[in-house]
Each structure stands twice: as structure tokens, then as C-alpha cells.
Design a protein around this nucleic acid. Structure first.
Lengths: 155, 155
DNA sequence: CTGCCTGCAAACTCTTTGCACGAAT
DNA sequence: ATTCGTGCAAAGAGTTTGCAGGCAG
């Protein structure tokens, strides 16, 4: 989805809810879409401040739910204490995450029959499936052989 | 796995690590295995205190990793802020969780090909798969039709 | 103008940790 | 005796929220 189309989608969502289009929300939106990897609220705050230094942490936390609600962002919780976010790419509706146990880098992959699986299994239990998530923990081959991961992060 | 077998497994694990078998650890162990649903650290603290009122919150948090390390408990993170635990039932190695979006009740189901899926997908990316988790969010049928869920929890 | 938005800082939740006492081996 | 375990309370991390002033519509 192009940046322009995404921005229209965001503004349309705000308008439909009677919410205002502020500079802070636009800066956070732009920073979020500019990321090439999964990011945390704190990382987004840094990036958004580079565009508009008046952006506060509170507004980032208040804007993230808006962007996930209109499907511009996907929230990913890998159980590490902090949540990650990533721009919803083109039409990929069924994705799973692969998390490197060493550097914690998150990759997304298509997971074709995940939805079918959730439906089958939930219906068997008398439930109406809403969503499903699949996460795979793995080691980079590089890490497995050399003991070091090429994408090491600080934390 | 019977209670007795499980306790032997726990004690063997402690012994193998040079850790001591204390009344508090045994109370926490017994309380954990007595649960019929997924539980939080706080709920376990209450139950363990019913068996031994000297058990502290810190010891619960220090004992949970021991019980998960020796595979007596499974840790389940549904992204709600707090972690849940559940006794590892008989031989079920491949399980997925179904979480009711209304009451947040967690059910476990067999997920036969989950491991195969993780392996396939991770290898395709040049990764060595370690573990995978699949979670399905769903509505109880009762909730879907009547708007109320039979297992409503307070929080 | 009106009422939603914002930044700030304090509050909150869950979990971890430092310390001095206590108990298992 | 030694050494590990424990309770307590404070610290920590991430996120949410109350409030008074600010800005979009």
C-alpha cells in the first residue's frame, strides 16, 4: 500500500470517528510507515520526534491503537515484555512471525492454512474464530554454526 | 502424569541442580498441579498460601521458572500483560491455545502439524526451528448468540 | 468558541532483585 | 557450619491516566 493511500486511509478513519488530524498524529503515522523492521513504542517515539519534536510518549501510546484499529499496523507480542508493531504490508492477511532466539529479530512469513486451521479447531470446540497467531522461535543458521548472529541488537 | 510421579520428577530436577527441597517449593508445586485451569502467578500465590501461609510472592516467581524448566508446567503468554501457567498434561507435546475474547478463558487443543509447519517454514528461511506457538482467539458460541459468556471472569 | 488533544508526570501492573535472616544438608 | 532459600519491600520496565492548558474544526 502506497504511503499516500495509507495516509488517506488513516485520515478517513479519524474522520469517521470524529477524531482530529493533528500534526502529532501525522508525524507518528509517517514515522511508523517509514520503518523497515518491527518497532517498539519507544523506537517509534524517537522516529516521530525526528519529524516533530513536540510528540510525546503518551501520544505515541494513544495513537498506536488507532493505527492498529484501522489495520495500518499489526501488533505483535512475542512475550518479551514490550509490544512490537509493523506496517501491514500489501494484501498479506495470513502471516506468522519467526523470532530469532538470539537477536530477537522478527521476520514475517506467509502462513496459508493458518486461518483454516483456526476455523476448524475453534468450530470443533463450539467457538467462533476471530483471529489466530502463529509464532516460530528459531536460530539463524549463522548463529547455530558460528555461535553469533549477524543481526545482534544491543538489548 | 500422576501427582506422585510429578513430584518425583520435580524433586529429581531440584536434586540434579543441587537445589533444596523446601516446604515452600513443595506447597507451590502442589498448588500448581491442583489447578484445573490456566492460572497466574498471583492466583498460584493464593492457592499455595492455603497450603503453607509462609509462601511469599517472590518465591512463587522464583519457583515458576524451575517448574517450567523441568517441563512440569507450560508458560502461556496471550499478550494480556500477565503470564499464565498450566500443568503439562500427559504426552501432549503439540498444543495450541484457544482464548475466548470475552471471558479470556484459555483452552488447550492438540495441534498435530504445528511442529511440521514451524520446521518447514523456518528451514525455508535458513533458520533452525526451536519452538512454535499457535493461538486462536474466538468467541464462545454462547457469547456469540446471547451476548454473554458462561465463564465470565471478574477482570 | 467548544471540545477534543496534548505533554507532563504520577500512577499502575506485573515481575525482578538486594538484603539480612532462616533453614536444609 | 555452610550455603542456599526466604520474606520483605523497593526497584524496574512498559504502559496508562489525570490534569491543566492548547489547538483543530
Amino acid at each position: 500500500m502506497s504511503h499516500v493511500v495509507a495516509r488517506e486511509k488513516f485520515q478517513a478513519y479519524l474522520a469517521s470517528r470524529g477524531l482530529r488530524v493533528t500534526n502529532q498524529r501525522l508525524a507518528i503515522f509517517a514515522a511508523a510507515l517509514a520503518q523497515t523492521e518491527h518497532f517498539t513504542a519507544e523506537q517509534l517515539l524517537d522516529q516521530a520526534r525526528a519529524l516533530d519534536d513536540s510528540v510525546s510518549r503518551a501520544t505515541v501510546y494513544r495513537t498506536l491503537p488507532l493505527m492498529t484499529a484501522c489495520l495500518l499496523l499489526r501488533e505483535v507480542d512475542i512475550g518479551s515484555g514490550e509490544k512490537f508493531y509493523f506496517a501491514t504490508s500489501s494484501g498479506a492477511t495470513e502471516v506468522a512471525q519467526v523470532v530469532c532466539v538470539d537477536c530477537h529479530k522478527i521476520s514475517e512469513i506467509n502462513a496459508p492454512f493458518m486461518e483454516w486451521y483456526g476455523s476448524t479447531v475453534a468450530l470443533k470446540l463450539g467457538l467462533k474464530p476471530i483471529a489466530q497467531r502463529l509464532q516460530v522461535s528459531a536460530q539463524c543458521i549463522a548463529f547455530h554454526t558460528s555461535g553469533r548472529c549477524p543481526h545482534h541488537r544491543k538489548k
